[in-house]
Amino acid sequence: MELQTVWFGLIAVLWTGYFILEGFDFGVGMLLRIVGKNEAERRAIITTLGPLWDGNEVWVLVAGGATFAAFPEWYATLFSGFYLPLLLILVALIIRGVAFEYRSKHADLAWRARWDWAIAIGSFLPALLWGVAFANIVRGVPLEVSGLGNVEYVGGFFNLLNPYALLGGLVTLTLFLTHGAIFLTLKMSGDIRERAHALVTKIGLTAAVLAVVFLLWTQLSYSDKTWTWVTILTAAGCWLAGLGMNIKRREGWAFIFSALTLALTVVSLFGVLYPNVMPNIDRALVGLDIHNASSTEYTLRIMTTVAVIFTPIVLAYQAWTYWVFRKRMSSEQIPTPEAGTLGELTKSH
């Protein structure tokens, strides 16, 4: 297989990892104040994410870095073209990351409530906007060759807010919400688990409707391949299986199925896209594909060697941390807060 295809596949793998892992922590972040009814419950939820969220986020950094290294033209056109949405994502990821780390450092309910909002908004924006971004890439965007001979995005900001892309955003948003709720049923005990359990079906069915419409739209309007039917239909099947497993209280299976759905969604989108990486909205005009966007053979070979050696190592130690922190958590396990005003913190407010 040619290396451009390998790297297209590897970038799909990185996004798959990102959607599965940060997908649940986006979902949990948005549900924090909905599922966690008091301070101890919220702390329990954040403590569950604590050892994991940063490692999850690295997946998108590596996806970005890999795109830069393997397809510089794609990286350059995409990042300069989708400027304002990416700025929003950056702001969201900044306030969210700081919120996780700083929330517990000060024993004041107002302080913590503000950081809860930072977590919720910081999770909501990327969960929505990554979907908008991917849908736009699949749909195609207005591109032109500049005076320097580079393929540049010329669509402006509002061009990105078309119905198909917004639907894509709602799909990732609701998928991540459901995925996060399933994660909570798997990792928490007591009331949090019950509340999350009830939410899975509600949000999950909404997500199912949105995702089916979106994926059918994708297949019918943008795919020239038959095999993407298979991944799309399997994705739908996995989703329903996940919702079913949740009803039967098989939380581990429910999580595996929702993870599979996310994986198959990414595979379907990349499958529809291939061999393009950033097609023109008018397919007759210039666009970026794995060949005209790619690095040289030499760079791709170096990167392949590095990826082949280190990806399994990374997977092994990340899996290890998930194993170390596998136990369920409940609000009873949260230590009495450190000092002062904190006695009242377990009350709902």
């Binding site: 970005g64 870095g65 890999a66 830069f68 393997a70």
Partner: peptide, 13 residues
Amino acid sequence: GDIFGAPLAIEGL
């Protein structure tokens, strides 16, 4: 990008 991207990607990984 052909040169600069590689160390960045390796840094991430």
